[in-house]
C-alpha cells in the first residue's frame, strides 16, 4: 500500500480514470479522474485502494487475496481484461490508466460486475469428479478412495486445474459478446479438465456442450488464452474437446486404479 505521507524520490504520479456507474440508482455512467502517487511495485489495485482511502470512498471494487489467487479483482485495464492486483502500474508504461468493468458481464456498480451467469455456465458442466461408487450404493458413498495417476495422466489436465474463475477469458471472448448462452472459454476448458481426468467416470460429459449454443460456436479467436493470468490455455482445451467430439482423437482414458482408504472414523 502507498503511504500518502511518505516523501520519497521514487514516487511518481499516475492519472487513474475510473468508470463510475450505479445501476441500482440508475445514474448515468461517467469516468472520474484521480492523480495517484505510485512506486515501482504499486499495483493497479493498490492505486484504486489509495483512491478509496484518501480521495473517494464511494468507488466500488471487488478484491480479496491481493495475490492473483481469488480471481475477484478482474477489470478492464487500459482496454485489456486483467487482474488489478497482478498488474503493476510501472509495467503498463503509460501516464493514464483507465479502469473499466469487465465486458460481457452486467455491471453492478463501478468496477464490480455480476458473475451469476458466468458461474451458472461453470456449474452446468458439472465441475467435479464423478465416480460410479457412491452413486447407486449409499454404503460406498461413505467410503474414501485414493486414486493412482501417472505424471503423464496428470499432465493432461493439470494446467486447466489452475483456473481461479476470474472470468477474464469469459470477458475477452467475442462469442460470449454475441451469444450469452455460449458457455464461454472457462466452462469449456473446465469440461476438458474433468473429461481428461482419469478419476472421472462421467458418461456423456461431452453431450453437455454439444448443442446449438455450445462448443461449436467457438471461432478460435484465442483471446481467452491471451488474457488468462494463470497460464491456462482455454482455447487449447476447446480444440482438444472438439477433436474428441469429431472422432479425430480417441478417448483411450484408462480409469485410475483406486484403493479404499480406512478413515480414522472407521478405524476407531
Amino acid at each position: 500500500m502507498i503511504n500518502s505521507n511518505e516523501n520519497n524520490k521514487d514516487e511518481k504520479k499516475i492519472v487513474l480514470k475510473i468508470f463510475r456507474e450505479n445501476t441500482a440508482q440508475k445514474t448515468d455512467s461517467h469516468y472520474d479522474t484521480f492523480n495517484v502517487p505510485y512506486k515501482k511495485w504499486t499495483t493497479v489495485l493498490d492505486a484504486l485502494l489509495y483512491v478509496k482511502s484518501y480521495m473517494d470512498p464511494s468507488v466500488a471494487i471487488r478484491y480479496s487475496c491481493r495475490m492473483a489467487s481469488c480471481g475477484s479483482c478482474g477489470m478492464k485495464i487500459n482496454g485489456i481484461p486483467r487482474l488489478a492486483c497482478y498488474t503493476k502500474i510501472s509495467e503498463l508504461e503509460t501516464s493514464t490508466i483507465e479502469c473499466e468493468p469487465l465486458p460481457n458481464l452486467p455491471v453492478i456498480r463501478d468496477l464490480v460486475t455480476d458473475f451469476s451467469r458466468f458461474f451458472n455456465h461453470h456449474k452446468n458442466i458439472q465441475p467435479y469428479i464423478q465416480s460410479k461408487d457412491g452413486v447407486d450404493d449409499p454404503d460406498t458413498e461413505k467410503k474414501t478412495f485414493s486414486f493412482y495417476q501417472s505424471p503423464d495422466e496428470v499432465d493432461k489436465y493439470l494446467q486447466f486445474s489452475y483456473c481461479i474463475k476470474c472470468g477474464l477469458c469469459y470477458s475477452a471472448c467475442p462469442t460470449v459478446g454475441t451469444d450469452l448462452k455460449f458457455p464461454g472459454p472457462q466452462a469449456l476448458a473446465q469440461l476438458y479438465r474433468y473429461y481428461a481426468d482419469t478419476r472421472d467416470e462421467t458418461k456423456n460429459r461431452l453431450d453437455i456442450v454439444d448443442d446449438r449454443h455450445g462448443i461449436w460456436r467457438c471461432h478460435f479467436a484465442g483471446s481467452c488464452s491471451k488474457v488468462c493470468p494463470k497460464g491456462v490455455d482455454p482455447a487449447l482445451g476447446i480444440q482438444l474437446l472438439r477433436s474428441y467430439m469429431l472422432g479425430i482423437s480417441k478417448n483411450d482414458k484408462k480409469l485410475a486404479e483406486k484403493n479404499e482408504i480406512q478413515t480414522d472414523e472407521e478405524s476407531i
Binding site: D210, D211, W216, M245, L246
Partner: peptide, 8 residues
C-alpha cells in the same frame, strides 16, 4: 442430429 454431427 447432434450439433457435432452437423458440424462434421
Amino acid at each position: 442430429l447432434k450439433e457435432s454431427q452437423i458440424m462434421k
